[in-house]
Design a protein around this nucleic acid. Sequence first.
DNA 1: AAAATAATGCTAACGCTGTTAGTTTTTTTT
DNA 2: AAAAAAAACTAACAGCGTTAGCATTATTTT
Lengths: 193, 193
Amino acid sequence: MVRQGLTRADIIQAAIEMIEAEGLHGFSLRELASRLHIKAASLYNHIKSSDELHTEIGYYAIAELKRAQLAAIAGKERSEAVEALADAYYRFGKERPELYKVILSLPMVKNDALHRAGFDIVEPIMTAMAGYHLSREQMMHLQRVFRSIMHGFISQEEAGCFRRFPVDVAASYRLAVRGLILLLENSEKETRE
Amino acid sequence: MVRQGLTRADIIQAAIEMIEAEGLHGFSLRELASRLHIKAASLYNHIKSSDELHTEIGYYAIAELKRAQLAAIAGKERSEAVEALADAYYRFGKERPELYKVILSLPMVKNDALHRAGFDIVEPIMTAMAGYHLSREQMMHLQRVFRSIMHGFISQEEAGCFRRFPVDVAASYRLAVRGLILLLENSEKETRE
DNA sequence: AAAATAATGCTAACGCTGTTAGTTTTTTTT
DNA sequence: AAAAAAAACTAACAGCGTTAGCATTATTTT
């Protein structure tokens, strides 16, 4: 028995690579173990459960998304920032669909750590909207609407729901983002009155 | 062996009831069979696979959603119709979350029957928007945006993503719908020019 | 350096899942 | 009444996550 010095981080990393390469759907602990040249039971020396590993991968995914978003909006303001943010979000969903699915499948309820991670998702949105003159409460609502539009669009496209009609998906996307910006401007106008 | 005259429809119906009552997550063929007082293997006399049953339940869910939507928009026009449609969609997601999840988990790709079912989802939206003066292509785009907003909002709320901040979810929802109506009016204006 | 402890792997097993093959029993059709 | 079809059964397989208990290898402590 040669025993490679496998760490918890190695296992999480390998799982991420597997999921990104072959999809979340067929992922299994036994397959992961096989890739690492150990038995499935041995994984439990490093992780508590499949769920815990899943959550850990979720943290990584959220961190990656946040990184991409913050990079995208750096030095931008108002509609330019919001558009850049939306683009980064959209690209992440499209280029790393399996990782995006991991975020979606995280049970956000009653999990302290995930609760914290939720801030990582919200923060770039708040930053991008900072240039608009909005109350804190308005920003909360608009941040929810932003996430709804983006998530809704990405997951429907991913599910194949947009392939039914031969109409340009990119144009639909731009329209969705325009709706958001209209809403931002509209909300701002109401505040000023 | 008493043999009850179990039909395919009975099995689908029982599965729907189980899923609505106890959730999609823990559903299994063995549990379903047990409820029907037969063995799991016997289910295969009526259905081809778990996937097929899943698809069948999806048809039911889509039909139910369509029914609720058409009832909601009957006799209404323009923003009133769109708001009623959104409300019906939202209520369906909230009142029958497990059934809604079944729709989401349907693989819409390369499945003729599901392709057809897709029209059932789109039709009420097109009807509700009929009062606006829009081109066919604009309607296609806006229908996608509608679905994105609604689906995004429902699934994020369901996932618990909106519980992080003590801000009224209903107000966020109304704002999202307002964004959609702003977009409809804006698109209409562009057409007239 | 020797002994003790902790870490990392193993095998074997449990109960769960969907699914198939082959058999029996009931019902329907001819 | 005989033949065919339908609906149930049992037994089994491969896969899943997971646990218990044991062996070995590193590391740490004495």
